[in-house]
Design a protein around this nucleic acid. Structure first.
Lengths: 237, 237
DNA sequence: CGAAAAATACATCTAAAGGTTTACATCTTT
DNA sequence: AAAGATGTAAACCTTTAGATGTATTTTTCG
């Protein structure tokens, strides 16, 4: 959106962590680094959100585990504000699901509280520099989840036990048009055949898909991976 | 699937790279490491596939850029074999799309040819050890693409300019049933109203969605985020 | 080649869908 | 109180969809 001209100026950092002791420690650590300027701290997620609105920090160091609010929700809200605020998650857990969801929501990094302070500083540098930073071990975790998701998706649609495989090429063409909401006559004119022929094909399709009408046939087609070409996939290969 | 009992035994590595000189150099590098055993090399993707079937290597070091076959397809085929063969991509390009797709297809790592040989060895160790390894710079690249995908998906479905918002609560109920392939009479009996009333509602729905028949209405509903509860999402938050 | 599958076509009939208009009772908002 | 949105219902009519049976011509494949 907006380009910052602060190649040398300090990055504004905001800290949100419900554990006050930890917050203070991190504050001290970061403040000792000359390149960062801690513009605010909060032990409460909601107050933290207000501080973000007020100070427009470059980076928010966000604890995931807070009583008032779910950390993921906080990320979501910050991203929704669209202020270019970059979220670096600081969490006690290396749960792959949590990492995945945080990154999916737009977090620019994820470090564990157990990690060395040097690593936190490095992550903060990278994130404030516009990069995404995940420690190698968490990257590994992330991909556990990511690739598993892809596999699950694949097995869902690759279940070739569906009746679609029984359709002939012509019947697939007809079904394709049905899936576009075309009438019998429309199909007939597009395939250059008579509408009675279309009815024959459609009836055969119903038989094979074990449905009673066009709407059910279309639903069956959509739910069983027909039309994959037309339906944009969320994550495509 | 199957647990290997080779904590100390050498990992079987297979090399596929169309550039013979590079292949030879990598072969020499890896062979010099005591923990790896190069069981085969090939400058041709198809022959490489046969070697995989024959030797069942633990790790395949795979070049992405080959004349005969697209590297991504090779990954896909290897994964389809389901032999537990782990693919480490060795590529000349740090294109975020390429990285993303390779990882999505199940690659367990991705290193650049320009990287230090020590990094290649390290990646190989990690991957043969069952982990996923992506160098920090490529992780960053990966997330560029990943998070962009998520954003695009979100803006697709969040476009609330669709006509669905014009529907009344009752009309939504009717549309919901239409989306299940229910007939007018079926809708009537389920909502305890007469079928003529259903027709009225359906006609109003058609008007509002600017379609001509139930199939088109259902398609509109599905394509515009109606029924989000029933349609499983690929990657959910 | 010859059998089987697929694609084509038509007739007939019934059921369902869809268009249009009118009407009335509620309920909310101005 | 008037206006507007909503839900309900019906009559009338036209079109489309769907079921069933029969039959001819291509294609495909053993």
């Amino acid at each position: 959106m907006r380009r910052e001209f602060k190649s040398k100026s300090k990055s504004k950092v905001l800290l949100i962590d419900d554990n006050y002791d930890h917050l203070a420690a991190v504050n001290e650590l970061i403040s000792s680094e000359s390149m960062f300027n801690v513009v605010g701290t909060s032990t409460n997620a909601n107050i933290g959100m207000n501080l973000i609105k007020k100070y427009h920090p470059d980076v928010v160091l966000l604890d995931m585990n807070m009583p008032e609010k779910n950390g993921l929700e906080v990320i979501q809200e910050i991203e929704k504000m669209n202020l270019g605020v970059r979220v670096l998650v600081l969490s006690g857990y290396d749960d792959s699901d949590l990492i995945f969801r945080a990154m999916k929501l737009g977090a620019k990094g994820y470090v564990l509280k157990t990690m060395a302070s040097a690593q936190l500083i490095y992550a903060l540098e990278e994130v404030s520099d516009g990069k995404v930073y995940l420690p190698a071990s968490l990257t590994s975790r992330f991909f556990e989840y990511f690739q598993q998701q892809v596999i699950e998706e694949k097995t869902e649609t690759t279940q070739e036990e569906n009746y679609l495989s029984f359709l002939t090429a012509r019947e697939e063409e007809v079904l394709d048009l049905l899936c576009q909401g075309v009438t019998y006559k429309g199909v007939a004119s597009q395939l250059f055949i008579s509408d009675t022929t279309v009815k024959t094909h459609v009836n055969n399709i119903f038989q094979k898909l074990q449905v009673n009408d066009r709407t059910q046939a279309v639903l069956y087609a959509i739910n069983n991976g027909f039309m994959k070409k037309r339906t944009k996939q969320l994550v495509r290969v």
